[in-house]
Design a protein around this nucleic acid. Structure first.
Lengths: 211, 211
DNA sequence: GTCTATAGAATGATAGAC
DNA sequence: GTCTATCATTCTATAGAC
């Protein structure tokens, strides 16, 4: 009991980093436990299975981010009666960057995990996210729809998924991209700089004239 | 020798489908050969290894698509002296859809493979693409940059990667998304419809005012 | 709660007969 | 060029001692 949460946390810390970098199926429990310096069997003792470990890793971020994001959106809608798309997207920057204070590289890891989960999973993660955090997602969709009332709902459905794709893919390759940008353009971007770059792109895309 | 290309083709046909659906590492050689109704050992006989099979699958599409895309861009630039971003992106639609005539679901499979390759690979596929098809990529980047001269080169680098992310992510989840759209909005989209939907989003994003 | 040891299943790859 | 048989490795998961 003494070191329970210590071992559990060591596993989570080690796992989230490796999952974000290499993907879920490319990361073995052996790698996780050796980096965490705990015994292989402890994963199954504390989490039951690899699948449940994956969900626990994601939940630790979602439980922090989702309520914070919801509060930020409510706040921006109170301050401006007609919040723009840029306002809505920008309001998410603080909750995202606050994840860096919770854990080293928290923002990057969270977004990479989200991307991996969306693309890799055969459904169990998508199901986990929508059933556990569906209320927040609905709230976000409504806020965006309000800010771009000229876009029909069906079109908005597609554009929000385009947006998710842009963010998730960018974050999954963020390390490689910042490296190339540094070499080719002598730009030195951290995660916040990348987020700030992507927002104008997203806003313009979501509110583009309907073909 | 008699059935050489027959077996080789059966393997490629079976592999590309499975790779696109499930990803590379989630697809075993056993699954590929059993669906292709060939012997397990034939993969290593014809391709040498799983890695080389993956490259061969991608190359079969790239060798068709890349020259066609290059020709389409040259053509649109000849017809209009000031081709817009929309013109450039739209010129790629035909080469993409022509892949459907080469193979059933060719367009979707190609784009899904591209996305999987970009995200999953630890470098060998990215290296393969840039060394074998780098000339085409450079040409494409130049064409886009010409059509949006107000965007600085470094910013354009980022926006083109945002664009790539949007496209490959959308295609990787295209099946799920069209299903949801059909259920929720009674929209029935094929791959061409999805491509036509994404182009305005991309054009607006790439040419968005620089923050 | 943590450890060793191992079961049990799956994988990529290959040797060698035909 | 195709087959069977198998090797060597890796993986998740668990039983049982401490």
């Amino acid at each position: 009991m003494a070191n329970q949460s210590d071992t559990k946390t060591k596993i989570l810390d080690s796992a989230e980093k490796l999952f974000a970098e290499r993907g879920f199926s490319e990361t073995s429990l052996r790698l996780i436990t050796s980096k965490a310096e705990v015994n292989l069997a402890s994963v199954n003792y504390h989490f039951g299975s690899k699948k449940e470990l994956i969900r626990a890793v994601l939940a630790r971020y979602m439980d922090v981010f989702m309520p914070a994001a919801a509060a930020a959106i409510i706040q921006v809608k109170q301050q401006k009666q007609c919040a723009s798309l840029d306002d809505i997207f920008s309001s998410l920057v603080s909750p995202l960057l606050d994840l860096n204070t919770v854990r080293t590289e928290g923002t990057l890891i969270f977004l990479q995990l989200l991307g991996r989960g969306y693309i890799e999973s055969q459904g169990h993660l998508r199901w986990f996210i929508t059933t556990h955090y569906g209320q927040y997602l609905t709230q976000f969709v409504h806020a965006v729809a309000e800010s771009a009332p000229e876009i029909p709902a069906a079109e908005m459905f597609w554009r929000l998924h385009f947006t998710l794709g842009t963010v998730v893919f960018t974050m999954a390759s963020a390390d490689a991209l910042t490296e190339i940008a540094a070499a080719d353009f002598e730009e030195h971007n951290d995660i916040e700089a990348v987020i700030r770059k992507v927002i104008p792109y997203l806003s313009a895309g979501v509110s583009a004239p309907v073909g």
